[in-house]
Design a protein around this nucleic acid. Structure first.
Lengths: 209, 209
DNA sequence: TAGATTGTTAATCGATTAACAATC
DNA sequence: TAGATTGTTAATCGATTAACAATC
């Protein structure tokens, strides 16, 4: 396997993707120069060229890069072409927001089930999904073979539910609960703490005062 | 003013904060060594010591760092002690989730108003806030002098509403709409795209297959 | 005291930028 | 052709790590 991309590289590619995709959507030009991308994102043009070269996109002197090629190469590099199934655990506001998030389809992600531990919520229709009981977890995992579980439960439920997810065979967890969770080595957890996002904002607010 | 912290530094400090805070919450020890923090976050202990030294925390040989001092110093460095007011624009699921997010208080952030452009939602009580009309924006800004606007509206509404926010005097925007928004130079925008978070996950999923 | 752990200096490493020949 | 823009090599820069004396 090729050398894996660095985290910062993945993030930059995602920014290029959005920028170039928006240009395609607006229909303003078939090609884009590294200088143009760099300017939009306040980066160095050489860095953009290196990043694109690393995922196999070649540009043309005097012309730049073909937008569709850039988009396609990033989709391949980041794995958007692979279909992934996810279950969402926690049918609260955040769980509902994620289950109804319009963009995931474009990245290959399909939400196949929405679960909740609260009996009152079972059977409700949220964002096109009928809320299912946590007790059906094993069954749902068997049926849909999800690659990912999205955890949008309250802090105190996060660890016990994570344990159940792991026991049910889930190997990747996207954790939105504002707490860390302990899992075996082989299970991947990505924490998406709103508060970490806010930390950067708070630091900015402090500095502009 | 001191040299600003780098972005990566801010993110690491936030991780230290959570880790040390959790140790305090569990009551397992008044002090923590750089090696312990480093192990928990898979970093080098020297890096932890440097990061802490940069914000003025001193440790003791043989003892380590006093947890409360670490937490306090990070809170100061990142500006959690400063009170900030935010308004949330968009009373959908995501807006409601953010307006009711339990953790923000700890970081100095208070949600002072929840607005929506949909007449049907005006007057509803969501997460303790009565939804107010977008037409009341100027008034609300004058009354509460918010430091921040959280944007949780659909893609097509993001730009026009951002324009109104800027016109009303908002200088920092936390954008959850999956689109970029154009604002004058002096306005700070932090994009919190769920899809960017997912990009890293997708890349991971692709690699473990 | 002995030894764990710090703070700091020097070395390394990798990422970014600069320079520039190649080329469409 | 002339010139814009690429791809690549070399230089720089900053961040991370290693080493180790200081010290509680």
């Amino acid at each position: 396997m090729k050398r894996p991309l660095r985290r910062a590289h993945v993030v930059r590619l995602m920014h290029y993707y959005h920028l170039v995709q928006e240009q395609l959507d607006r229909g303003t030009g078939e090609t884009v120069s590294s200088a143009h991308i760099a300017e939009g994102l306040e980066l160095d043009a050489t860095l953009v060229r290196k990043d694109l070269a690393a995922i196999g996109v070649r540009g043309c002197p005097r012309v730049g890069f073909v937008c569709t090629q850039v988009v396609e190469a990033i989709r391949n590099a980041l794995g958007f072409e692979q279909a992934h199934r996810a279950i969402v655990i926690g049918a609260g506001r955040l769980g509902g927001a994620i289950a109804s998030y319009p963009g995931f389809g474009k990245y290959g992600l399909t939400i196949v089930a929405l679960l909740d531990g609260d009996p009152e919520k079972i059977g409700c229709l949220i964002a096109g999904h009928t809320v299912q009981p946590l007790s059906a977890l094993a069954e749902i995992v068997t049926e849909h073979a999800p690659d990912l579980a999205v955890l949008t439960v309250p802090v105190e439920a996060a660890q016990p539910i994570a344990d159940r997810l792991v026991a049910a065979g889930i190997r990747s967890i996207w954790n939105f609960a504002p707490t860390s969770i302990a899992v075996p080595r082989e299970v991947y957890v990505r924490h998406e703490h709103l508060s970490t996002g806010f930390a950067e904002l708070a630091y900015h607010l402090k500095r502009v005062e």
